[in-house]
Design a protein around this nucleic acid. Structure first.
Lengths: 203, 203
DNA sequence: TCCTTTATGTAACGATCGATACATAAATAC
DNA sequence: GTATTTATGTATCGATCGTTACATAAAGGA
């Protein structure tokens, strides 16, 4: 039990949540230590003692983001009875999440650090890995539908996964530009129109 | 004729082009004055004398970007004989442009400054305006097709324009992640599959 | 009670940020 | 020629960046 020494005077979990919101709104390089400590209600030595560095704090924040904000989106993908409903639900949940007005618009994973840099190569790499994982999850779900006979055997799961992942990334920028939930749903409708063609006219 | 005084010892146009490439690769806040002056081959006083400020330089750089890199994409949209070919050409040109390996991947307008900030509100606003203009161009082209009878009168031009613009934005992130031209074309194929449904199965 | 351990607040570190003061160089105007 | 105008290179500005020394405070172990 690490109960030796002076106890921490702030709640680590809620401080991490505040940090996540700052990174989410401003991106990795746009979020300064001053921004972070102000939002977390602590001084920089406490931040470094509890999280190690700005980089480590960001990695932990993105992990929290994935666990807290991403679950609705990705559980829908896995749990929907058909692949069509899975993709539709995945995109619909995305539209709902990205347009919420009580938090930053768009996705932290997609927008957090797009410009590679010597000082933030690790950050870019981590976000890129997470984006790749998400696309893989889409591909797996489609592959399952092929295996189950819902989709034809020659269905190009990889191409379709690329397409739907790209649409979701675009929705992040759209949301950042202030798009309404209705506008995001127009994009969802477009993507699902593609599904109709890709899966065969009767799907 | 402003030919008084000591003549400038560097080519303003090519220096601006170098600055554009730096902003393109690193974004507005990621591009430091050191990065810029090193790439432009000049010292900071020369930069400020010729361009005014980092902000003004960025605005001029995005203008150059729009005039030089965007023409192929947007001229295709206007000149294609049908709306379907216009959209397909627009996306195909986008895939070609975004995957070129001799320059930064993705679009400067889409990726240049996504995180609003007190110091760069003007930059975000300008890029946002340019993105909105692009979407409007798509909508106008589709509206023309409705007027010409190519598309049904109840075709939702605004929704479709939103969808295709969003796909293009997503392609920027995809390209930044190192997607090949083939991967980008998979997304184009997906978007055109949507067209087939949206414009009627026989279109 | 003292010792060890951990956390906190203040204050500052070297580095870099965007932006300039200043003296000098190179052109035209007279 | 001299005066004026503009550009350049050096050197530096104050502010902020991410990070850390250091002394003090607050807990458990002996």
């Amino acid at each position: 039990m690490p109960e030796r020494g002076r106890p921490r005077s702030f709640d680590r979990a809620s401080a991490l949540r505040r940090a996540m919101e700052v990174f989410w709104a401003k991106g990795y390089e746009g979020a300064s230590l001053s921004d972070l400590t102000a939002a977390m209600g602590i001084n920089s030595p406490s931040l470094y003692a509890a999280f190690g560095s700005k980089e480590a704090l960001f990695l932990e924040a993105t992990d929290l983001y994935t666990r807290s904000e991403g679950t609705d989106i990705w559980s829908t993908l896995e749990e929907a009875p058909t692949a069509r409903l899975a993709i539709e639900g995945f995109l619909t949940q995305t539209a709902r999440a990205y347009a919420q007005t009580d938090r930053p618009q768009g996705c932290l994973i997609a927008l957090g650090a797009l410009h590679q840099d010597s000082t933030q190569g690790l950050i870019c790499q981590d976000l890129r890995r997470r984006r790749a994982e998400n696309q893989t999850a889409l591909e797996r779900r489609l592959g399952r539908a092929v295996a189950e006979g819902e989709l034809p055997a020659d269905f190009d799961c990889q191409a379709a996964a690329t397409f739907f992942a790209t649409v979701q990334h675009g929705m992040s920028i759209q949301a950042r530009d202030g798009a309404t939930h209705a506008a995001l749903m127009a994009t969802v409708a477009g993507a699902m129109a593609a599904w109709t063609t890709m899966a065969g006219a009767d799907a």
